[in-house]
Computed example of a mutant assay.
Amino acid sequence: MGKKLLHNFSSLLGFFLLGLSLWAIASELRQYDYRDVFKSLAAIPTSRLYWAIGLTILSYLGLANYDSLAFRYIGHALAYPKSVFTGFISAAATNTVGFAFLTGSAIRYRLYSAWGVPAIAIAQIILFENISFWLGLFAVSGVMFLFYPLEIPTQLHLPFISVRPIGLIFLLVVAGYLVGSLFARKPLNIRGHEFRFPSLQIALAQVAISGLDWICATAVLYILLPATTALSYPGFLGLYLLAMTAGVVSNVPGGLGVFESIILLLLSSKVSVTAVLGSLLVYRGIYYLLPLVVATGLLGLYEILSRWKVRSP
């Protein structure tokens, strides 16, 4: 009886998540006029669109591999395709819908519990994934902010005039994590919860995989900007990371509005606002909406097949 109730709850959760994803897709599409979308697409060379899609695939491969690395960290065996499947769907939902607890975490619980992964292991995987996300952001941002510092616009009302101090803080956090992975042998007790550092090899892999994801995500938007944009990729990388950090901290789904506002503010002196808006529109479609559509289709197919297997004799 208990197992049946648990299965029914898990199935309901799966269909709830599927509905939430479909709602997110519809909400995202409602914000744009289809004529604006076609105009923006027409202004970008086809080769650049292909590059943007390829870089998006590479970025999401990195995101999907967080889970595989997490299973190595907790010492639990699970088939690689299952962890990558779950990692991709979770990343696509969290990136666009936001509210990680209701999307990415719930998707991981739904899928991993169905494959026999204990609840405590799922919680460890979710924590590991979140740490990996921030490690990559801090590592790449730290390097860029320290060696290619941007002047912070006064409109942002931050206590710094340059991002260099932020970069130094970010790198110190990453260095502290790596040092802990090298020397800490006993778990840390944080508010009654134990945290065990991974091995140095896994910690370095966290930084590398997450860092690659951020570099590719930035390249997607950079390659969609007009060819006349007088800005190098390293220069744009720092700008993108500052805007994305503000968007993530705001907890708005996908940083929507916050991210665009900062990008426009920092690029307005180099590129026309209309051109930047067009590139941002296509970027949203390729990097956020397209993966969500694919992930929603995969999740829907999984739920249908799961129900079919239960009903089959």
Rank of each mutant, 00 (worst) to 15 (best):
G54E: 06
V276F: 00
R185C: 04
S250A: 13
P159C: 00
L224P: 06
V252L: 14
L78Q: 02
H193T: 14
W115D: 15
W308V: 11
A77W: 12
G136Y: 08
A205Y: 12
V140T: 15
M244C: 02
I57N: 04
E260P: 01
F16Y: 15
M244I: 11
A64C: 01
N95T: 07
A43F: 07
V163C: 09
I120V: 03
L231K: 10
S141C: 09
G62I: 09
R30A: 03
T96Y: 02
F128G: 00
T56K: 02
L135P: 10
F128V: 08
V276N: 08
R191E: 12
L150E: 09
A100D: 11
V117D: 12
Y73L: 12
L102V: 13
L290W: 06
Y50H: 00
T103F: 05
G87L: 04
R48L: 12
A43T: 14
Y50R: 07
G247C: 03
Y288K: 00
G167C: 11
L13T: 13
D67S: 01
I286W: 04
T86G: 06
V207E: 05
V117Q: 09
R110L: 05
F15N: 01
F183P: 03
R284L: 05
S141E: 08
E151F: 08
H193C: 02
Y50P: 10
K186T: 06
P45M: 09
L204S: 15
T154M: 07
G167Q: 10
L55E: 02
K309H: 13
Y112H: 13
I263N: 08
A100E: 05
G257P: 05
L18A: 12
